[in-house]
Design a protein around this nucleic acid. Structure first.
Lengths: 228, 228
DNA sequence: ACTTGATTCAAACAAACGTTTGAACTAGAG
DNA sequence: CTCTAGTTCAAACGTTTGTTTGAATCAAGT
């Protein structure tokens, strides 16, 4: 059972990172929860930063592989035609939310971990994630551009970011949600309904007519009285 | 000039909190930047937690007052009729983004501070913000419910959360955005275009047809093979 | 000028942090 | 058994953290 030290540390670190955040979790809290010696972290991972990278990589890599796999399947299925928007969104969003049902991948904790890492200030977490997300971003960008071919590049840019931001926010946890909604309508946020609601919202948002920017900007400038 | 100690601390703390995050900013970094003695923080505010609360309150209160003011103006203008969705969204979103132009309110830093505080793990920040946002939430909820009267309560619940989440994400900073988009299309994110893009996206998302949930959930269950 | 109350200051406090160390322990190979 | 490489362990390292202390300084009241 002693060869499980590394995984014990990873599990405990993941749970605590997801619950309290990265900065607020000390190595002592991790090793204490994992019931291993304090020095084991530096022995197996080298440093606290390397531990964080390992914890993230263990979850992010399968998730992003699944995203790319789904996209490949879609593109193979639709051939040269554009992939329907809803399928594209689902390919990007679903792997994140569905892995939260898989207990072998960390279950509900995993989703909080990813969400938290996306809303973390610049630092180790950022540098670590950038590398992982670049491949996904580079594959999804042209796919979205093809499907939403009527959109100017800049508007597509914003909307893809909104999709990512919405997903990150949803994953970051129900904490912030309950900050606003005092009334609980149907128990804790169910992953399946959350996914459905998110996909519909994003689908509608990305389908918004293009060029609305100029109109609203003009309205704002008219209100502010600033000339062109 | 010595009576400006409190405000010097608030300004320095706000800048550092916005830049590095709450956990990563020490009292010594703050007092050093503010060029005041270390003990001044505990003398004027009592503790580090109280400092955080003071920094947040200074910015959040005017913002939320402006939100409520805008909503009141709208409701007075439209009388018993429902306020148009776009106006409702703008009343909630615009005060956050527009205060970032006002240099007397902290300028661009302010927006990062608020966004960061919304994506912070549970703790002082949460307990502090909950009180401030409850009043806003209680006023906007029925307004949205009236405008989107065709929506089931649960769907409205989700979509309002998406709006908040999207705003928080947008405010949290352009850092995360550049994590995904390697290509910069039009320089740094301009507040005005960001506002316009956000309003359009949210407007479309909230206008999405209701009841789509059941359809997509059914599709997901069919795919997963789990019976009703 | 003297007193008073508010503020600033340098110094120290205990606690917690990430990391390092060197010895103890646990295997399997010769 | 002996040797060796891998791993665990208690203890300590030097920093840095938030907070406290007591004397020094300041501004004003009488």
């Amino acid at each position: 059972m002693k060869r499980g030290t590394k995984e014990s540390i990873l599990d405990a670190a993941e749970a605590l990172f997801a619950e309290r955040g990265f900065d607020a979790t000390s190595l002592r809290a991790i090793t204490s929860a994992a019931r291993v010696n304090l020095a084991a972290v530096n022995y197996h991972f080298g440093s606290r930063e390397a531990l964080i990278e390992a914890v993230l990589a263990r979850r992010v890599e399968p998730m992003n592989e699944q995203r790319l796999q789904r996209l490949s399947d879609l593109q193979a299925h639709y051939g040269t035609a554009a992939v329907p928007l809803r399928e594209l969104i689902r390919a990007f969003v679903a792997p994140a939310l569905e892995l939260s049902h898989d207990r072998s991948h960390g279950g509900q904790r995993f989703i909080r971990l990813i969400g938290r890492s996306l809303s973390e200030p610049a630092g180790v977490v950022h540098d670590c994630l950038r590398g992982h997300y670049e491949a996904v971003s580079e594959r999804f960008k042209p796919a979205f551009a093809r499907t939403l071919s009527h959109l100017p590049a800049q508007e597509l840019y914003w909307r893809m970011h909104f999709m990512v931001g919405l997903l990150a926010y949803l994953m970051a946890g129900a904490d912030i949600m309950r900050l606003i909604a005092s009334s609980r309508l149907s128990g804790p946020p169910d992953g399946r309904t959350a996914l459905a609601q998110l996909v519909e919202f994003v689908h509608a948002g990305m389908s918004a007519p293009a060029g609305a920017e100029s109109a609203t900007v003009a309205a704002a400038e008219r209100a502010a009285g600033s000339g062109s």
